[in-house]
Design a protein around this nucleic acid. Structure first.
Length: 568
DNA sequence: TTTTTTTGCGCC
DNA sequence: AAACGGCGCAAAAAAA
């Protein structure tokens, strides 16, 4: 049959797999069929585990040829980590597969695709070839679900996806060469595999604690509503009635991007209200803040964790390598890059304790100290700052603040605000100082460290001229010339992400051993590990050493990693 | 009633 | 001349 013609084939093959729609990472999902497409308009679909059993082929008869294909030809996927997991459920070994990925390739070439990185929309945009699903297909999907679509119906749909994936690859491949992104791509594939493993591990959840906090919070929320006379503390309309009409507090307006202003009851406003109300012995603002705190924590965290939990008690988020324009990762379902910091707030101060290690293991967090600032100082070649970074007895924010005559906390705020591209008005608000003082502090900062201003202006000019700028690892950040003021921040933020990516690959290859020391989470400049209790002392120095050994051109700068217990 | 947009807020 | 960068999620409000 058609597959046998591949014996003499020498190109690439596009593969798309269909699953029963269940979660692959925790073992509940499985592959129901495989479609292949290759040069010369060849394409076919192999149904294996569709509900209507008579249409299915026997996987045993195809395993050998499929394994041969995986081991022999470079394979093109759209989101390859998904399809590799899927193929593994057919008993195939994917470890030797050489992969390309039209989703990640597209993002590497253009991080600004507004329509997203779904196969359909990319093919529509680049090739003018859109969705191809019959009305019958859609009706079946709506009526009986994805997993019950008969193989015959699935065939036309699945073959089409493999076919356009191949076409999309043909469109992208020459660009990859033109932009000289080969080495970056090679790294990206390694990283994607690493992240896929991390996702499959998941992280254990203390379900009892989640449930306790939900019960506690819901009781408190009900009490608060009662005290406020039945008003909804989350509704702006009710808040207007409460704070402006009843308590006679001033209306606070918030600027919006289009130049208009809108009435605001955000946390900052509420804290200002509370300062006034405290003098009247009135706790309304505090109650509203508590209500909203509990509401967010319960819905976005405690409940979400329980609902998204796998049958084995572990939570498996989805990291998107194509999730951001700066080339950081993003994380969803749930977003474990926004777990509230430990603190004293009753609604979220102990959120981190919901994440617990396996028995006999310990959760350890390794954080880069001032990662982005150290990168910035390296780019600027600012010798004084680099000297402070190199000396473990000196504190960067203390010294900067001393030179500006401000307190350490304000110095830190200033540094980060400026690195995000804040202007004087924003700094004035952030430091709670008048405009002229903010202006003077900013001027002084750049007078003390002129190289920082010079290098950020260089990045801005570069984008104004070329509409793009290259990160240290060779990947690009493209943007509108009108956004050029963001250029430096992008180079730093993206550069930091690339360093962490590089070091996580090194950790995987040089330090972490399965079931002794595993990576579980990444939060931009930190990595969370699950380490066997008796091996913590062994692994922490290795982790620190590996993470601090950043690649050139940053290897002449001292980088510092803090390692501590999770939630401590 | 259902879908989309806005607002607020958690993280780095 | 001026601009606080990058995300995901849930509830309320607005639109359809």
């Amino acid at each position: 049959m058609l597959l046998e013609t591949l014996e003499n084939y020498s190109g690439k093959i596009a593969i798309d797999t269909e699953t029963n729609g269940q979660e692959l990472r925790d073992g509940s999902g499985y592959c129901v069929g495989v479609s292949l497409a290759w040069k010369g308009e060849n394409a076919l679909y192999l149904p294996f585990r569709h509900i209507d059993t008579e249409g299915n082929y026997d996987i045993a008869e195809f395993r050998e040829i499929l394994q041969f294909i995986l081991d022999t030809f470079p394979i093109i996927f759209h989101n390859f980590t998904f399809d590799l997991m899927s193929l593994e459920t057919l008993g195939l070994d994917t470890s030797k597969a050489v992969v390309f990925d039209t989703m990640l390739l597209t993002h590497l070439l253009d991080e600004n695709v507004a329509t997203g990185y779904k196969l359909d929309s990319l093919c529509q945009m680049y090739l003018g070839m859109g969705k191809k699903r019959s009305d019958e297909f859609i009706a079946w999907m709506r009526g009986f679900g994805w997993g019950s679509i008969p193989s015959e119906l699935m065939c036309e749909y699945a073959v089409w996806d493999a076919y356009i994936t191949y076409k999309l690859y043909e469109f992208l491949a020459p660009k990859l060469r033109q932009e000289k992104l080969g080495p970056v791509w090679y790294q990206k594939v390694k990283f994607a595999k690493l992240i896929s493993k991390m996702e499959r591990r998941g992280i254990r959840i203390d379900t009892e604690l989640c449930r306790r906090k939900i019960a506690e919070g819901e009781a408190i929320m009900n009490e608060i509503i009662e005290k406020l006379g039945g008003l909804n503390p989350a509704s702006p309309k009710d808040q207007y009635a409460l704070f402006v009409e009843k308590l006679d507090l001033p209306v606070v307006y918030k600027d919006r991007k289009n130049g208009t202003a809108t009435v605001s009851f955000d946390k900052y406003t509420m804290q200002r209200y509370d300062e006034i109300l405290e003098l009247r012995d009135d706790w309304t603002a505090k109650l509203v803040l508590a209500y909203r705190g509990w509401q967010k924590s319960i819905s976005s965290n405690y409940k979400a964790y329980l609902e998204l939990l796998s049958h084995d008690g572990r939570l498996r988020p989805n990291y998107k390598l194509h999730g951001t324009k700066t080339r950081r990762m993003s994380c969803e379902h749930p977003n474990l890059q926004q777990i509230p910091r430990s603190g004293t707030k009753p609604w979220n101060g102990e959120m981190k304790q919901c994440f617990i290690p396996r028995d006999g293991y310990v959760l350890i967090e390794a954080d880069y100290a001032q990662l982005e600032f150290r990168i910035s100082a390296t780019y600027a070649d600012q010798r004084e700052l680099l000297a402070i970074f190199a000396d473990p007895t000196r504190d960067i924010f203390t010294e900067i603040s001393k030179g500006l005559g401000i307190i350490r906390y304000d110095g830190k705020t200033l540094v980060y605000a400026l690195s995000y591209g804040a202007g004087t008005p924003r700094i004035s608000v952030a430091l709670d100082k008048p405009l002229n003082e903010a202006q003077a502090i900013k001027d002084n900062y750049f007078k003390n460290y002129p190289e920082l201003l010079a290098v950020s202006n260089y990045a801005k000019k570069k984008v104004e001229k070329e509409g793009k700028i290259r990160l240290w690892n060779g990947s690009y950040r493209h943007m509108n010339k009108s956004d050029a003021h963001k250029a430096y921040n992008s180079v730093i933020q993206g550069g930091a992400a690339a360093i962490v990516e590089d070091r996580m690959i090194a950790l995987e290859e040089e330090v972490c051993k399965v079931d002794e020391c595993d990576m579980l989470l990444q939060v931009h400049d930190s990595v969370v590990f699950e380490i066997r209790e008796d091996l913590v002392e062994h692994y922490t120095p290795l982790i620190r050493k590996c993470m601090e050994a950043v690649p050139a051109p940053f290897d002449t700068t001292t980088f510092k990693v803090d390692i501590h217990r999770w939630a401590a």
